[in-house]
Design a binder for these strands. Structure first.
Lengths: 201, 201
DNA sequence: GTAGTTTTAGAATATATATTCTAAAACGAT
DNA sequence: ATCGTTTTAGAATATATATTCTAAAACTAC
């Protein structure tokens, strides 16, 4: 069976995730991961073919678990209410996993060396965007009754960008938002969703 | 007077700005700037002490000119209307200077090597944030009648983050937003500003 | 023309970091 | 115990890029 492993994929991934959250994925170095995990660099390359693959694993793992739950929120019967549910889910998620949230909200896919990913990772990423596109189109059809470019854009803004703008600041400032700020966010999203639907009708 | 200069601060800065907008400031290399400007690297170091100083000049120039105009929009008599005016200004600005807008919207100050800036640059940056803080506090007082942490947060979200969420997508998708998306943005911001004021009263 | 100055020009150097490589350790099976 | 295998361990290598350095060019003033 060979020499027993002291350093496993999962623990190395955790070190990489923590360090990426702390210093940003661009500044992740293999040497740092090694130091944090008390592992030699050789062991890291034994588990991951390259830095790009390690960073890709961080990103894909995170996005796959987050996105699945996020999109599930959109399935509710009333689209406007479902949109708010997805926002509530996000708020809860970043409270529960602040480190992971930093990674998703404060950095972009390219910061995780996406242009050097192996083919399998590219396929995983494509599946993610395909699933998101499907869900967005489905949601657009239900909220606005159409799925043209304009509709997709509105939906993406309503569900992704608008909430993200508030969550970002929540993270950068540290603690959870005060009551007033959160109320304002919810009310605004609620208004925007209902107005979009009203205009469509 | 010495040998006449073929490469001036300003033209080198332009090259750096264009390349940063195209490939991201993190990926700006001195060699690339040299090639783009048809200048030897020595001439670049003759004008700028370091890569950090060059990137800092890109960022500071941009933010100083943008922020001054942006904050001026907030001076109007009716705070809610002034907030919308600042949004209109931003929309016009990114239509007029799409390359520069990429830099401001898609990247953060740290991406411009802010941690290695010389003291003079740090001071310029401090002046910028001080001016922004003053303007935000002043605006918060006018819109909400208070300037505590909660109020500041709401104002920052209303004036900065919320608009930015839409402008970001506008840039990433290329062309200007379709009519529906822009209407939705304006209506939402208008609602949010007025609701914040209403709640405060 | 000579001296002084600024700028060009790009080669040489330094440094950081990803990646590879060699040797040995630690196990199971025979 | 020996062999085959997996993993550790970290030194050696490769590469990219910022920065420095030396020489010369191109001007002005005298």
């Amino acid at each position: 069976m060979g020499r027993p492993a002291r350093h496993h994929r999962e623990t190395l991934l955790e070190s990489a995730r923590d360090l990426s959250a702390q210093h940003g994925p661009q500044n992740l170095t293999i040497a740092r991961v090694a130091r944090r995990a008390n592992a030699p660099v050789g062991s890291i390359y034994h588990r991951y073919k390259s830095r790009a693959e390690l960073l890709g694993a961080v990103w894909l793992d995170l996005v796959e678990t987050f996105q699945a739950q996020f999109l599930a929120c959109l399935e509710g019967p009333d689209p406007a209410e479902a949109g708010l549910a997805s926002l509530r889910f996000s708020l809860g998620w970043i409270a529960e996993f602040p480190r992971e949230a930093r990674l998703l909200l404060l950095h972009r896919r390219e910061d995780f060396a996406a242009d050097a990913w192996p083919a399998t990772y590219r396929r995983r990423a494509q599946r993610l965007t395909a699933a998101a596109d499907r869900a967005m189109a489905n949601y657009a059809e239900r909220l606005l009754g159409r799925t043209d470019a304009d509709a997709m854009r509105q939906v993406r803004w309503l569900l992704v960008d608008l909430p993200r703008s508030a969550l970002r600041r929540e993270l950068e400032e540290g603690g959870a938002s005060p009551a007033g700020a959160r109320e304002l966010l919810m009310a605004t999203c609620s208004f925007a969703l209902r107005r979009a639907r009203r205009q469509a009708a």
